[in-house]
Design a binder for these strands. Structure first.
Length: 426
RNA sequence: GGUGCGUUGGCUGAGUGGUCGAAAGCGCCGCAUUCGAAAUGCGGUAUGCCAGCAAUGGUAUCUAGGGUUCGAAUCCCUAACGCACCUCCA
């Protein structure tokens, strides 16, 4: 959500920023609606002022027992009132349209975000770790997995495509990965562990920006609840509508939850394996911070995600997303892409975004600056995966695979594996 | 799923259909007092929009949306949320 005042004062800057994202200019239509809406408001308020004045006089007249004057005034007010609903209706319609357009616009990219159309124009910032050299034919996880407890057929029989049924040591490994990452984020990186709802209402989805534009990406129950596509929704909305004390900031939250995505529009993409599922687990990080610190927090959060990959000794690269590849709510995003030897490529495993006040405005999440009794400011919000559990599982299986089809367990995960040191093919 | 009660400013909490943007207290800010502080006293303390250089004035907002009325924090309806009891159930 954008500040209409800012647009009023900087229409060209606003449109230029939208253009960098490849979005159509919007300032002109917004300002036209804004002007109309305000003109109608004024008109309405003039009418209301006269009505209120007359109504007060009626009260006085009645108090003095002057029934005649009261009747005359009442007639006048009735006349006045007959015209008001029409203006009211117009005003509602105009400001409704204004809100709709405003609510559907993406965030403005930060100045240092590279301009580009799609992922091909993302910029590699750094690379960590050396891809392992294999002395046997490397296989994809979808190839290795079935003998280790990764069962797509059983899942398909009950749920269809893009679901997985994990068994035995494979299920255990997924649990170990989730537990390990949650422990790291809470005990090492200062995030508070949360266990939030995974079903949320419309306004929560609007607050974090999934609605109104991206409803087709998520599942909705027959009751009207949405299944969260990421715990970002639940965690960020925990401060929705609140006025925090400056001293409470920063708030750092994390949660391990299932995430649900319809993957509409990605038909034919990543159909093999665990990469793109309707349901997957993810450890999410969210930070609610003072506006002055959001850029630093962005780096901090990215490092928190990187620390997991380093501990698991998984090679990765850090990408700065270009304007065309960023999510609608982000001002700036770093993606971490893990090396998948089976696919001979780097694949996204974490996405860390700073949203500025874009979500905070939508949620009306504010803080009260220290030492001031009045006045509030919007907080800044950030979110990032720390990390996606399913894709981490893929990365472990592919990077730690052995010639005999077994998979060794990264040292960091051993304490979570209950004595299992290797996944053995059945 | 059923019944009842509730939702007021940063917080607590009054409020008979007109004089209520709303008592009082707390908190916060300023001033006085003090060497300084505490305590005390005095004053000030919501937000959006419109007009205005400004002071200020107008208007809307007492969870939200409808309605009744010349006039609604106050009456009616609906929803959301909270609490209690009942029913059911991991």
């Amino acid at each position: 959500m954008h500040d209409i005042k800012y647009i009023r004062e900087n229409p060209e800057v606003f449109d230029a920023a939208l253009a960098r994202r490849g979005a159509e200019p919007a300032a002109q239509i917004l300002l036209a609606l804004d002007e109309q809406s305000r003109a109608l408001k004024t008109q309405l308020q003039d009418g209301q002022a006269r009505r209120n004045e007359a109504s007060k006089s009626i009260g006085k007249a009645k108090g003095q027992g002057d029934e005649e004057t009261a009747q005359a005034l009442m007639a006048e007010v009735a006349e006045l009132k007959s015209k008001m609903p029409e203006i009211e209706e117009q005003e509602r319609e105009v400001s409704g349209r204004l809100q709709n357009i405003l609510g559907a616009l993406p965030n403005l990219p930060a100045d240092d975000v590279p301009i580009g159309d799609d992922e091909d124009e993302n910029v590699e910032v750094e690379r960590w770790g050396m891809p392992r050299v294999f002395d046997f034919p490397v296989r994809e996880h979808s190839d290795i997995g079935p003998d280790l407890g990764l069962d797509f057929e059983t899942a398909a029989s009950m749920s269809g495509a893009r679901f997985a049924f994990l068994r035995g040591q494979m299920a255990r490994l997924q649990r170990a990965i989730g537990q390990y990452m949650l422990d790291q984020q809470t005990m090492e990186n200062g995030f508070q562990e949360c266990a939030p709802p995974v079903l949320v209402r419309d306004h929560a989805m609007f607050g974090t920006g999934q609605l109104p534009k991206f409803s087709e990406d998520s599942f909705q129950t027959t009751e009207g609840h949405w299944l969260i596509p990421t715990a970002e929704v639940s965690l960020t909305n925990s401060v929705s509508g609140q006025i925090l004390d400056e001293g409470q900031l920063p708030i750092r939250l994390t949660a391990l939850t299932p995430c649900f995505r319809s993957e509409a529009g990605s038909a034919g993409k990543d159909t093999k394996g665990l990469i793109r599922q309707h349901q997957f687990e993810k450890v999410e990080m969210v930070a609610i911070v003072h506006p002055d610190t959001s850029d630093d927090e962005h780096l901090r959060m990215t490092e928190a995600a990187e620390s997991i990959l380093k501990a698991l000794e998984l090679p990765y690269r850090k990408m700065l997303l270009c304007t065309g590849d960023m999510g609608a709510t982000a001002r700036k995003t770093y993606d971490l892409e893990v090396w998948l030897p089976g696919q001979d490529t780097y694949r996204e495993i974490s996405s860390v975004s700073v949203c500025g006040e874009y979500q905070a405005r939508r949620m009306n999440a504010r803080f009260r600056p220290e030492g001031e009794s009045k006045g509030t400011q919007f907080v800044h919000t950030l979110n990032g995966s720390g990390l996606a559990v399913g894709r981490t599982l893929v990365a472990v299986v592919e990077n730690y695979q052995q010639a005999d089809g077994s998979v060794t367990i990264p040292t960091a995960l051993l304490p979570y594996m209950g004595g299992i040191e290797k996944l053995e093919p059945a």
